[in-house]
């Protein structure tokens, strides 16, 4: 049972691993171009496992910023993970112990979260851990290769691979949004707010990480107030 679940997780995480490889390849190449070694860049990737936070962190390292600025920036950019962890915690159920939770927390990236929430079967610990293996490998190996090889792959191919991550998000959101009007409304609202925070004067000054949190809290909060969910509907998220 455990082994079967682990393998199911591995299979689920494979496309994410491939997508990560291409994105982190860019991160590795950029880090080395800015004066870090390929080893340091890989160390950042294997310990952080986050894209936006790492790119921002790299900028701060290069600028010799203070450690407090580093901590604050990571808090702002990565605060969305707190919401995801909260949702994931509810989804996993209270039977799962602290140690597995501490492990799952490490691999709670946007994409792994998306896959976990899209799963119809219950979230078991072996499944979650299996889900994390290939993305961690892809993310770290991509950084190392990017650091060592620089810009071997043409930019056009790297960029095209980078879009895979968005493709996965869309594949997670669209089917339930078509089934349930409330989810469609929530997604549409989040999309509208996200556009405001990208293009509107003043609002667009907000960092990308923080604006994602604001859009999520506002859209999910408004929808929770307007369309409360009954118990039986929740099970299918």
């Amino acid at each position: 049972m455990g082994w079967k679940e682990f393998k199911a997780g591995l299979r689920g995480g494979a496309p994410v691993g491939v997508g990560y490889f291409s994105v982190s390849f860019g991160f590795g190449a950029m880090a080395v171009a800015q004066g870090l070694t390929a080893w340091m860049a890989s160390l950042i990737s294997v310990t952080n496992l986050t894209s936006a936070g790492q790119f921002a962190g790299l900028t701060l390292i290069v600028a010799s910023a203070s450690l407090w600025e580093m901590v604050l920036t990571q808090l702002v950019i990565n605060s969305r993970y707190a919401l995801m962890s909260l949702a994931l915690s509810q989804r996993m159920g209270e039977k799962i112990g602290v140690l597995p939770r501490l492990l799952v927390a490490f691999i709670n990236t946007d994409e792994i979260f998306a896959l976990a929430m899209a799963r119809k079967e219950p979230l078991t610990v072996p499944y979650m851990l299996g889900l994390g293996v290939l993305p961690i490998l892809g993310w770290t190996a991509g950084t190392l290769c990017g650091g060592l090889a620089g810009s071997a792959l043409p930019v056009s191919i790297r960029r095209a691979l980078g879009v895979m991550l968005y493709g996965m998000f869309i594949a997670v959101v669209v089917p339930p949004a078509r089934r349930e009007r409330n989810i469609l409304a929530a997604a549409a609202l989040a999309m509208g707010l996200s556009c405001l925070f990208t293009w509107a004067p003043v609002l667009k000054e907000l960092s990308e990480g923080l604006s994602i949190v604001v859009c999520t809290v506002a859209a999910a909060g408004l929808c929770a107030w307007l369309f409360p969910v009954r118990e039986e509907e929740e099970a299918e998220v």
Binding site: L86, M117, Y166, A190, M191, S194, I212, A219, A224
Partner: peptide, 23 residues
């Protein structure tokens, strides 16, 4: 019930806000 509903909508809102218009 409010918090449960909130968390029900979080994944969709968060993934959508990250995707559009960034894509």
């Amino acid at each position: 019930a409010f918090l449960r509903s909130f968390l029900h909508y979080v994944p969709y809102c968060c993934l959508t806000a990250m995707t559009f218009p960034a894509i």
